[in-house]
Amino acid sequence: MIRYTLKCSAGHGFESWFASATAYDDQVLRGLVGCPVCGAVQVEKTLMAPAVRPARKAGGEGTAAAGPLSAPASEAEAALAALKREVEKNSDYVGMNFATEARRIHAGAAPERAIHGEAKPEEARQLIEEGVPVMPLPFLPTRKTN
C-alpha cells in the first residue's frame, strides 16, 4: 500500500491510499479519485515526505517491539487479522467471479452459502441496486498480500 498526498484542481489537499503506483494512475485515468471537499476528479500528487522510522537506540531503550514483521502492531490490526481468518474459514473464495456467483446464489441457481471474492466498483454498485446483500471487506484476499 502507498499513501499519496493529493491536491484537486480547486486547491484542496487530501490524502489517499492505493495498492500501488499503477493502481493510482489507473484510478485517476478512470476518474475514480475525487476530492472529498468538492468532488473534483482532476487531482494530482503533491510533494510528500517519506514515512521513515527513527533508528533504534542501542541498549534496548526506545526500540520497537521485537517480533516478526507479520505480527499485528496494534489491537486494530489484530482484530482485522482475526476477522480475515473468520471470513476465510467460514466462506468460499470465488475470486473475480464474485458478482456472478452472488447473483446466482441470490436467484437460487446456486446453493446458498457464504462467499467472498473481488468485484469492480461498478459491479458492486449493480449488486446493491439489484438487492443482492453484499458488503465490502476491509482487507485484501490472501493471494494478493505479501
Rank of each mutant, 00 (worst) to 15 (best):
K57G: 11
K57S: 12
A58S: 15
A58F: 07
G59R: 04
G59K: 06
G60R: 05
T63S: 09
T63Q: 11
A64N: 09
A64H: 09
A64Y: 06
A64T: 09
A64Q: 12
A65C: 11
A65M: 11
A66V: 07
A66T: 08
A66S: 13
A66F: 07
G67D: 10
G67H: 13
G67N: 14
G67Y: 10
G67F: 12
P68Q: 15
P68D: 15
S70I: 14
A71V: 11
P72M: 08
A73V: 11
S74G: 08
E75M: 10
A76K: 13
E77G: 05
E77S: 10
E77A: 10
A79V: 08
L80R: 11
L80M: 14
L83Q: 15
L83K: 03
L83I: 04
K84T: 07
K84I: 02
R85T: 14
E86H: 09
E86A: 13
E86Y: 03
V87W: 01
V87H: 01
V87S: 05
N90Q: 15
S91M: 02
S91P: 04
S91V: 03
S91C: 09
S91R: 01
Y93L: 05
Y93H: 11
Y93M: 07
Y93W: 12
V94F: 00
G95C: 09
G95W: 07
M96L: 13
N97V: 00
N97P: 07
A99L: 04
T100R: 13
E101N: 07
E101G: 00
A102F: 02
A102D: 05
A102I: 01
A102K: 00
R103Y: 05
R103T: 08
R104S: 02
R104Q: 10
I105S: 02
I105M: 02
I105G: 00
H106D: 06
H106T: 02
A107C: 04
A109K: 13
P111G: 11
P111D: 14
P111W: 09
R113E: 09
R113P: 09
A114S: 15
A114H: 11
A114E: 10
A114R: 08
I115Q: 01
H116C: 08
E118R: 01
A119C: 03
A119F: 02
K120A: 06
P121I: 08
P121W: 04
P121N: 06
P121R: 05
P121S: 05
E122Q: 12
E122V: 10
E122M: 06
E123T: 03
A124M: 09
A124H: 04
R125F: 03
R125V: 01
I128H: 07
I128N: 11
I128T: 15
I128Q: 14
E129S: 09
E129W: 06
V132M: 04
V134F: 00
V134T: 03
P136F: 03
P136E: 13
L137P: 08
L137M: 08
P138M: 00
F139H: 02
F139T: 04
L140N: 12
L140R: 13
L140F: 12
T142I: 12
T142N: 12
K144A: 04
K144Y: 02
K144W: 05
